[in-house]
Structure formats: C-alpha cells, structure tokens
Lab assay of single mutants.
Amino acid sequence: MFKRLMMVALLVIAPLSAATAADQTNPYKLMDEAAQKTFDRLKNEQPQIRANPDYLRTIVDQELLPYVQVKYAGALVLGQYYKSATPAQREAYFAAFREYLKQAYGQALAMYHGQTYQIAPEQPLGDKTIVPIRVTIIDPNGRPPVRLDFQWRKNSQTGNWQAYDMIAEGVSMITTKQNEWGTLLRTKGIDGLTAQLKSISQQKITLEEKK
C-alpha cells in the first residue's frame, strides 16, 4: 500500500525546468507551479508516452532531478554507511541512485490517469530550513484521497528550496528505503546496493492501464 502511495505522490513532485522555475526561495510556489507544469506535460505528451513509456525517463531527467536534492536524499538512505564509504564508492552510488530515480519516478508518472491535487495554504517560513507541505491527491475514479507531506529543505548556501522526502501515513519514503535496503547494505555494503540500483534502473517502464 505504501509503495502505491509513494508512486501516486511522485506525480506531483516533478519540479519546473530552470527556464520557467518559480521563486526558488518559496517552496509553496515551487510546489504549486511544479504540480501544474507536471500535470500539463503528462496530459499533453501522452502520444509520446504511450508510444514509448521510457520517454518518461527524459521527462524526469529534464523536469524533476535538477530540483530534487538527489545527493542529500541518497546520503540519508545510506545512513551510517555513508561515512564509511570511499569517495569513489559515493560517486558510483550517487550515479546509480540518480539512474534509479529516473526509472522509479518514471514508473510513478506512468500512473497518471487524470488525477488532480490540492496544496495546503502557504504558511510563514520564518527562519525554518525544513518545511512540510501537505498535498491532497484526488483520484477521478473514486479512490479515497491521498494526503501527503512533502519535505522541502532550504539550501544554506543559495537560499533555494528543494524537495527531498515524502511522508505518507506517518511513514517517510527515506525511512522506507532504509528499511528495504538495510539488509543488503549490511551483507554486501554500498557496492552491493550500487549494483542492485544499476540493475533496477535497467527495467523498462510500463504503463498502468486505467481501472
């Protein structure tokens, strides 16, 4: 169930391209415009997507990853294993993690069937560096609404905000991946996880038929 919630949630996290980005210092504006741009692209490019579902990787690479804190999220997933990894191991892992996100997020976007969304009203940021933004996803086919909290983090150097995690039903996506990959990290280390991520990233994206 959580895996499905995570995939549905990713439908609204794909941010804007650099040329049309919203105010990078306001995570609420980023979330709002990102959702609108993403849904528009999914709707307008269905012919290309249906002809070649792996085209979704391109959308992810162009529109999402430049505005997601990939390395920060990847380091959180590694936890204690990050500090013990060599620079070469980290570089290989982050490259594999990025390719994994292209496949995983692309597969999530393949679930698009006309969903709509509501974003919580903007709250004062103050001096906060981590801000959760509640998004409610509404399914046109009558499924119950899904309420999610996207975690946005302020870059201490640039002042810009980027998304790095999502919490559904009190469970963090980062925590879920830590639990899912924990045994592999304990037995085969970061190299074993890197190899698995490379394998997963090679899987073809498949479209979910409308139910």
Results as ranks from 00 to 15, higher is better:
78 L>Y: 09
154 K>G: 13
115 Q>H: 08
79 G>R: 11
129 T>C: 01
154 K>L: 04
111 M>A: 12
52 N>C: 14
202 Q>H: 15
42 L>D: 00
169 E>V: 03
190 I>H: 13
179 N>Q: 05
108 A>W: 10
95 A>E: 13
195 A>L: 08
28 Y>L: 05
128 K>I: 10
15 P>N: 05
10 L>Q: 01
143 R>N: 01
74 G>Q: 13
36 Q>H: 04
11 L>K: 00
94 F>I: 00
200 I>R: 08
5 L>C: 07
2 F>S: 04
42 L>N: 08
93 Y>T: 11
193 L>H: 04
89 Q>M: 14
155 N>M: 05
108 A>N: 04
36 Q>T: 11
66 P>R: 02
20 T>E: 15
17 S>R: 02
56 L>A: 06
20 T>F: 06
148 L>M: 07
164 Y>M: 15
194 T>G: 11
3 K>L: 02
44 N>S: 13
41 R>G: 05
178 Q>W: 15
176 T>S: 09
48 Q>P: 00
144 P>V: 06
70 V>S: 11
207 L>R: 06
59 I>H: 14
116 T>E: 10
189 G>A: 14
31 M>K: 13
178 Q>E: 15
25 T>P: 05
131 V>A: 04
45 E>A: 13
25 T>N: 08
131 V>H: 14
205 I>R: 10
26 N>W: 10
55 Y>I: 00
56 L>Q: 06
108 A>P: 14
157 Q>D: 11
4 R>V: 05
64 L>P: 03
14 A>Q: 10
117 Y>T: 13
69 Q>K: 05
95 A>S: 01
10 L>F: 03
68 V>E: 10
70 V>W: 01
116 T>R: 09
6 M>I: 04
83 K>Q: 07
160 N>G: 08
10 L>G: 07
196 Q>I: 15
65 L>E: 06
113 H>V: 05
57 R>G: 02
164 Y>F: 06
1 M>K: 00
5 L>H: 06
165 D>A: 10
43 K>R: 05
95 A>P: 09
14 A>H: 09
16 L>V: 04
156 S>G: 09
136 T>C: 11
186 R>K: 13
200 I>H: 14
180 E>T: 08
38 T>A: 05
163 A>W: 02
59 I>F: 14
41 R>I: 15
204 K>I: 08
38 T>G: 08
126 G>R: 07
23 D>V: 10
17 S>M: 01
181 W>Y: 15
47 P>S: 04
185 L>N: 15
104 A>Y: 14
148 L>R: 14
75 A>M: 05
186 R>P: 13
32 D>G: 02
20 T>N: 08
10 L>I: 07
104 A>C: 15
74 G>L: 11
135 V>S: 08
207 L>D: 04
156 S>Y: 12
210 K>R: 11
149 D>P: 06
11 L>P: 05
73 A>Y: 04
96 A>D: 06
63 E>P: 07
153 R>Y: 06
148 L>C: 15
106 G>V: 11
106 G>S: 02
200 I>L: 11
179 N>F: 15
147 R>V: 03
22 A>E: 10
103 Q>W: 13
205 I>T: 10
10 L>M: 05
11 L>Y: 10
34 A>R: 11
97 F>G: 09
170 G>C: 15
127 D>A: 01
134 R>A: 13
54 D>S: 01
173 M>R: 09
195 A>M: 13
155 N>C: 11
207 L>I: 00
7 M>K: 01
122 E>A: 05
126 G>F: 15
39 F>D: 04
121 P>K: 04
104 A>R: 00
153 R>K: 12
122 E>D: 14
204 K>A: 10
116 T>H: 05
14 A>I: 15
157 Q>S: 07
45 E>S: 08
77 V>E: 14
13 I>S: 11
195 A>D: 07
201 S>E: 03
201 S>H: 09
56 L>Y: 01
51 A>Q: 00
58 T>D: 11
11 L>C: 14
6 M>S: 13
6 M>H: 13
129 T>P: 09
49 I>E: 02
33 E>A: 00
78 L>H: 00
17 S>F: 15
59 I>R: 08
168 A>I: 08
196 Q>V: 15
133 I>L: 02
33 E>V: 09
166 M>I: 05
78 L>F: 09
101 L>W: 11
191 D>W: 05
202 Q>V: 05
5 L>F: 05
147 R>P: 09
128 K>Y: 15
71 K>F: 10
192 G>I: 05
91 E>L: 01
144 P>G: 04
71 K>V: 04
145 P>D: 03
180 E>Q: 10
18 A>E: 03
85 A>Q: 00
115 Q>V: 07
110 A>W: 14
111 M>W: 06
159 G>I: 00
9 A>L: 01
51 A>M: 01
28 Y>D: 12
18 A>F: 01
144 P>Q: 03
177 K>Q: 03
111 M>T: 10
64 L>V: 10
126 G>K: 13
3 K>T: 11
201 S>L: 03
24 Q>S: 01
165 D>K: 14
16 L>Q: 02
94 F>N: 01
198 K>E: 12
60 V>H: 00
169 E>D: 12
110 A>G: 10
109 L>E: 05
173 M>F: 15
136 T>V: 05
132 P>I: 09
22 A>R: 12
166 M>S: 09
112 Y>G: 07
53 P>I: 02
134 R>T: 00
40 D>L: 10
92 A>E: 01
18 A>L: 01
124 P>C: 10
135 V>Y: 07
79 G>A: 09
86 T>L: 03
200 I>Q: 14
4 R>T: 04
104 A>H: 07
184 L>A: 08
146 V>G: 07
53 P>R: 09
139 D>F: 03
101 L>R: 14
141 N>M: 09
122 E>Q: 03
201 S>P: 09
66 P>N: 00
98 R>C: 08
172 S>M: 15
61 D>A: 02
45 E>L: 07
166 M>A: 15
64 L>N: 13
42 L>P: 11
99 E>V: 09
15 P>Q: 00
99 E>H: 00
210 K>V: 08
177 K>V: 04
149 D>S: 07
109 L>C: 06
91 E>P: 05
84 S>K: 00
95 A>H: 01
164 Y>H: 04
100 Y>L: 01
122 E>C: 04
81 Y>P: 03
25 T>E: 00
91 E>V: 10
192 G>D: 12
89 Q>W: 00
117 Y>C: 07
139 D>Y: 05
134 R>E: 14
106 G>K: 04
162 Q>I: 00
34 A>T: 13
181 W>Q: 08
32 D>F: 01
25 T>M: 02
117 Y>K: 14
77 V>Q: 12
8 V>D: 06
208 E>W: 09
205 I>L: 09
134 R>S: 13
182 G>K: 14
173 M>E: 04
149 D>V: 12
192 G>E: 14
146 V>R: 06
187 T>Q: 13
93 Y>M: 03
12 V>G: 07
80 Q>R: 11
169 E>M: 07
112 Y>L: 13
59 I>C: 01
75 A>G: 03
13 I>D: 02
101 L>I: 06
